[in-house]
Design a protein around this nucleic acid. Structure first.
Length: 427
RNA sequence: GGAGAGAUGGCUGAGUGGUCGAAAGCGCUCCCCUGCUAAGGGAGUAAGGGUUAAAAGCCCUUCGAGGGUUCGAAUCCCUCUCUCUCCGCCA
């Protein structure tokens, strides 16, 4: 959420910033509601104050044994007036809040202009795509020929966009996850964390998936519905909900491995083959909670942490600064990390690292006490994949494929694979 | 799933219709006193919002959440959520 104060005082600036995303903010409509809110709120609070003082007067009179009938008569119609004022105020405040909840975050000044992903700016590249002296297969062929990847069995029980993995391939994904968790917790200062995969609506309101993106989520049919998390960002960031951290308690860095569930509504026809885009996938997620002034630096650090994973795996990648039109709803600035996939002969997103500034913190009331003033201030949240395990698996399969259809196991994963150096068909 | 108990400020915990945003203790901050790492005395110490250019001040809201009764609710009524104990069941 954008600071409502800023919204009403610098409405034009806000609208201009959001316009960079291609978002149209109806400033006039907002301001006219805001004018209404102001007068209604002043009136409502005036009536509340009147009620409070008159109630106190009645109390005192009763204690003194005086007749309270005249006092009661004087405030006879106050209740009805107040009720009306309160409900009008609430109506306007709800309308304002609906607008506010639907506004994306303000973009950082560092974000390049552009309408869509074609305008994203490559920041750096690491490694060089390997050249193969045999016909390159994609992960679908590799996995299927190894007998370790089965989309038919998955479709049989769950439909499209699911996969079943067996043997070395299933283990390779687990190895990737463990390698990533170990690296981040042992070397990058993250606290390994286990979190719920089902969360209430308010958690998703906090991180910004709701109310706007309900269609992307799976929801249970229980009496009070749960949502399946689309990313561990949701539970991890919500660890800060309704909390006031002491200055010394920040920064906090959490890492968690979770499955992620996405309905992928609206992505029909995209990446329908293979494991690139699934309803369920594994991801290692990084979340930072930092004081406001530190979040730019934290975004650099977070991105670098994710990059280390790909470097250790010797997977070529590039880092891309998302342009204004491509930065997600809650983010002020985002770097995507894209890994080279030989099967597609292109770079594909494997991590997205975002600085959400105070956008989520305001929704969650996540704060840190300013050491000098003693006052609570909104903290900043950042999140990034470190990295998506399902896509990392694809990247390893395709980049480490060998002429005979086997997969070489990257050095750093061998300790997690019982020392195995390759994955091949069992005979 | 069954039975019971509970939810109050950073913590412990009082408060069953009025002067209660809330006793007391602990913790924390500042000051005073005191020559010995201790003790004592005093003051302060919730969050959100409105008004304001901003602050001060003033006002509003908040005692798990939502609704109701009342001139007035932490206190009474209803619904929900969560926590704890016992039983059952399970990983």
């Amino acid at each position: 959420m954008i600071d409502p104060k800023l919204l009403r005082q610098a409405t034009a600036d806000v609208a201009k910033n959001l316009a960079r995303r291609g978002f149209v903010f109806d400033a006039d409509a907002y301001l006219s509601l805001e004018v209404e809110r102001k007068s209604l709120q002043i009136e409502t609070e005036r009536l509340q104050a009147e009620r409070n003082t008159s109630a106190k007067r009645v109390g005192k009179a009763k204690a003194a044994g005086d007749d309270v009938a005249p006092l009661l008569a004087a405030v006879k119609d106050l209740g009805a007036k107040l009720e009306q004022a309160e409900s009008s105020l609430q109506r306007v405040q709800t309308a304002l809040r609906d607008i506010e909840l639907g506004l994306p975050n303000l973009l950082s000044e560092h974000v390049p202009d552009g309408a869509d992903e074609s305008a994203n700016v490559e920041v750096r590249q690491w490694g060089a795509p390997r050249s193969f002296d045999f016909p390159v297969r994609d992960h679908i062929d590799i996995g299927t020929q190894l007998g370790m990847l089965d989309f038919d069995a998955a479709a049989e029980m769950s439909g499209s966009r699911f996969a079943v993995m067996h043997g070395g391939l299933a283990r390779l994904q687990r190895a990737l996850i463990q390698f990533m968790l170990d690296t981040h917790s042992n070397e990058h200062g993250y606290e390994e964390t286990y979190v719920p995969y089902l969360v209430h609506e308010r958690a998703l309101l906090g991180t910004g998936q709701l109310p706007k993106f309900e269609a992307d989520l799976f929801r249970t049919t229980t009496e009070t519905p749960f949502y399946l998390i689309p990313t561990a960002e949701v539970p991890l960031s919500n660890l800060a909900r309704d909390r006031i951290f002491e200055a010394g308690e920040l920064p906090r860095q959490y890492v968690a491995h979770t499955p992620c569930f996405r309905s992928e509504a609206g992505s029909y026809g995209q990446d329908t083959r293979g494991m690139i885009r699934q309803h369920q996938f594994e991801k290692v997620e990084l979340v930072h909670l930092v004081p406001a002034q530190d979040s730019d630096k934290a975004l650099e650090a977070l991105t670098a942490h994710a990059e280390v994973i790909l470097q250790r795996l010797q997977l070529p990648y590039r880092v891309v600064a998302l342009c204004a039109g491509d930065v997600g709803f809650g983010a002020a600035q985002t770097f995507d990390i894209e890994v080279w996939l030989p099967g597609q002969e292109r770079y594909r997103e494997i991590s997205s690292c975002s600085n959400c500034t105070d956008f989520q913190a305001r929704r969650m009331q996540a704060r840190v006490r300013n050491k000098d003033s003693g006052k609570p201030e909104l903290l900043h949240t950042l999140n990034g994949s470190g990295v998506a395990a399902g896509r990392a698996l694809i990247a390893v399969m395709e980049n480490y494929q060998q002429a005979d259809g086997s997969i070489e196991v990257p050095e750093v994963l061998r300790p997690y694979m019982g020392g195995a150096s390759e994955i091949r068909v069992r005979d």
